[in-house]
Amino acid sequence: MSDLVMDWARQARTGVPEAVLCASKSAAQIEAALAAAEEAGHSLLLTRLAEPLFASLSPATRQRLDYDSLSATAFYGEVPNPAAAIAGVGIVAAGTSDLPVAREAARTLAFCGYASPVIADVGVAGLWRLLDRMSDIAAFRVIIAVAGMEGALFSVLGGLVAAPVIAVPTSVGYGVGAGGTLALHSALGSCAPGVVAVNIDNGFGAAAAAIKLLRAGARS
């Protein structure tokens, strides 16, 4: 008997669809999840699908996946047309080293039918880069901010925009910044109002939070 139990009612219940975290799973377990999706007639988002694990899937499976190596995500089945994507979320990444996490958030949003432009390499080490893009950033209804090192971007953005800021600390850093804990503490300790935090490297969780915020705003 398989240990796999898919939650196809999750989107109707929570607004965020079922997804499969591939880290620590075998190729056989991932293939079983995809077979369950095919049998149920559902699309499926795969996260943390590292390139070696993707390469271990059967050739037929790999051909059926829309795989993105930077974010380690894959889409199975039909996904919403980008031309019809819902606007409102913007992703701001402090550095190009933060792009894998930013891209995970963007891919999750795209899978769910939301547009999410990524504005990258605007960290506070060169504050002018962020200020040059503020007219674009201020137009977003929800902002996902992605930063490692000391995580200063979270408070700076929180003090400049009206939108809620979802802080995603990344494990990018060294010394006391290694592992992302310092950036997480910066997000949690921010004095800028309206900054909330998800776990380290959790681009998927940030995207889910952004979707729920937009859906709550639409209901009101």
Rank of each mutant, 00 (worst) to 15 (best):
L188A: 06
A192S: 11
G88T: 04
A167I: 06
A167M: 10
A216H: 12
G77I: 09
E150W: 10
T170F: 06
G159V: 08
A218N: 00
A145W: 00
A218R: 09
E18Y: 01
A84F: 09
A94M: 05
R13D: 15
G194P: 13
A145G: 05
P117L: 02
S155E: 14
V124G: 01
T96N: 09
E18W: 03
T61Q: 06
A35S: 15
A209W: 05
A74F: 01
R62E: 10
T181Y: 10
A178T: 10
H185V: 13
P169H: 08
K25Y: 08
A115H: 04
I211E: 10
G88D: 05
L214A: 03
T170N: 07
M134A: 01
S186E: 03
T96C: 07
L157C: 05
P82N: 12
P193E: 11
P193T: 04
V195R: 08
V124R: 08
W128C: 02
D98S: 09
I166M: 12
R10C: 05
L57Y: 03
E39N: 14
A106I: 03
V198M: 11
P59E: 08
G126H: 07
A192L: 07
C22G: 03
A106M: 04
E31I: 03
C22A: 13
A12S: 13
G90W: 00
I119S: 06
A207W: 00
G41S: 08
A83E: 14
Y114M: 08
S116N: 07
V101H: 08
A102V: 07
G179M: 07
G148K: 13
L46K: 01
L157I: 11
A72V: 00
S155V: 01
D7T: 13
E78P: 05
S26Y: 08
L46H: 02
C191S: 13
G158C: 06
V124T: 15
D7V: 06
A163N: 06
S43N: 13
A145R: 02
V195N: 07
I91D: 09
G203K: 02
V196I: 14
R62Q: 15
E104W: 00
S97K: 09
A28N: 04
V5S: 07
E78F: 01
S56Q: 14
F54K: 02
M6E: 00
L160G: 00
D98E: 12
D66H: 00
G113Q: 02
A27P: 14
S26P: 08
D201R: 02
E78W: 02
G15E: 12
V20M: 14
E18L: 03
A110R: 08
R107N: 15
G151Y: 06
A85H: 15
A105T: 09
P17C: 12
V176K: 10
L21Y: 13
T181C: 05
L127S: 06
L57C: 07
F111T: 01
L44S: 11
A210T: 02
G173A: 13
S26I: 01
K212P: 03
A106Q: 15
S24Y: 09
D68E: 11
A94G: 15
G151P: 03
A183V: 04
L49V: 10
L214W: 05
G189H: 12
E18I: 00
L213T: 12
S69H: 11
A145L: 04
S97R: 12
A206G: 11
P169A: 10
L57R: 04
A60C: 05
I143V: 13
G77M: 04
A40V: 13
D98K: 12
F204G: 02
